[in-house]
């Protein structure tokens, strides 16, 4: 079963994402900020990370940069998932190594499509 790490400081958003991901056949773990996310990735090596941008401690962009600097054998796919929807942010995230970008609000169809695009869902 593919593993997804859901990173969001809102428990409600994590629950929504998680229920969609589980319907799509993912096994989920959660983190509530960027620092927790980096730690969780080291421990669980998920296939894909759904990563919010605005979070306390370390934000999603910080986590993205940190994760892309790690010497991975097999780097996880990273899908940014945020209410921020300006062009500059999307460009910055993709340039920093995000594979896809989901703008909130989204639905299961959009999520499935993005997961397919990054190659973690058939």
């Amino acid at each position: 079963m593919p593993q997804c790490l859901v990173v969001d400081d809102s428990a409600v958003m994590r629950r929504i994402a998680r229920s969609m991901l589980e319907k799509l056949g993912f096994d989920c773990t959660e983190a509530a900020d960027g620092a927790q996310a980096v730690e969780a990735v080291r421990q669980h090596a998920p296939d894909v990370i759904l990563l919010d941008w605005e979070m306390p401690v370390l934000d999603g962009f910080g986590a993205l940069t940190a994760l892309r600097a790690e010497p991975w054998g097999r780097a996880p796919r990273i899908v940014m998932c945020t209410t921020l929807s300006d062009m500059e942010r999307i460009v910055a995230a993709l340039e920093a190594g995000a594979d896809e970008y989901v703008m909130k609000p989204y639905d299961q169809e959009i999520l499935a499509d993005k997961l397919r695009a990054v190659g973690v869902l058939d």
């Binding site: 929807s85 062009m87 999307i90 993709l94 970008y101 703008m103 639905d107 499509d113």
Partner: peptide, 20 residues
């Protein structure tokens, strides 16, 4: 709309071919 551009379009194509 934001919903419509996310249906089937990759973020790479969005930033390349669209403006906000």
């Amino acid at each position: 709309s934001q919903f419509e551009v996310q249906r089937g379009l990759s973020a790479h194509r969005l930033i390349k071919h669209f403006s906000k």
